[in-house]
Design a protein around this nucleic acid. Sequence first.
DNA 1: GCGGCTGCGCAATATTATTTCCCGGTTGGG
DNA 2: CCCAACCGGGAAATAATATTGCGCAGCCGC
Lengths: 166, 166
Amino acid sequence: MVAHRLDEIDRKILAELQADGRMTNVELAKRVGISAPPCLRRVRALEEQGLIRGYHAEVNARELGFEVQVFAMVGLESQAEVELNAFEERCRNWPLVRECHMLNGEVDFMLKCVAPDLSSFQSFLTGQLLSTPNVASVKTSLVIRGAKDEPGVPFDVLEARLSRLA
Amino acid sequence: MVAHRLDEIDRKILAELQADGRMTNVELAKRVGISAPPCLRRVRALEEQGLIRGYHAEVNARELGFEVQVFAMVGLESQAEVELNAFEERCRNWPLVRECHMLNGEVDFMLKCVAPDLSSFQSFLTGQLLSTPNVASVKTSLVIRGAKDEPGVPFDVLEARLSRLA
DNA sequence: GCGGCTGCGCAATATTATTTCCCGGTTGGG
DNA sequence: CCCAACCGGGAAATAATATTGCGCAGCCGC
């Protein structure tokens, strides 16, 4: 946690770029209250420290033909580290799997998947996921509709927390 | 689904911007094989059609002090539309809840939450989520580690699918 | 008080975005 | 078959932006 090395301006920068990753540097500088050159230097520093991992366009999956979104909860036979790594590596190579998180509890992995339609997903499910060695159980849940989808971090919570420490 | 109106260049543009949302227009044009002006026109059109919803910096939540990530599966007492909307609206107002998806099956909602630490999350869980009217059950799973996290869409799958239709 | 360090802002330069204009290919009617 | 309108693409000019270099002020540690 290097957040303590960040001042309020840095956090504002992160919040602004999280909200609009294509913001101009001069616009960003204006919003955080400094001039353009030091602002750009701060952004570069944040990138090099790994606090900014990258920038991405948010695409409309549904309009692009991915109408199905599914959460899959996967249990493995063996939870040996080698087996966990092997399963994670498989997930990284499956394009339909967009996220893979290891969990505590009875379920070992939570997968977020997308697919053009139900039959595509089902053929992935039976042909790939369920036929993977060491996979003991898969429970899937279809996403009916999305109500909120804002990956990232709530900077207002961060501000409140840091000001309490000050 | 307007994907049919897109040609291969448009899809390449989307894929490139999904991978790097801050790519220069000239760089983008070079990669997709056209010159800068028409490339910019295409990007603008994609934005206006809503196929590009926005651009976001991907921040390192853990380094920023959000060390806890939790999936929460929520069941409601009543699934009447009014109640569903009410719950969704609450989720939108909870900063710790970053995603909220309505599911089929026994569980009504899947929430992805972040928090600075376990006790913050637990106080949110007991003080907010569990004490919300109409919430019948909440099962939570802590994320131990992340293996893959690439929101968005696998454009290679899209390409394969469209070429099959052609 | 005095270097040394750090971060800001200003000004100049290089790069990029954006607009304008023009050209070639394609399509549909005559 | 030809012509005209149309839809993109490219080239050049212009505006905006990013980037660099430099000097200045504030802040320690001595």
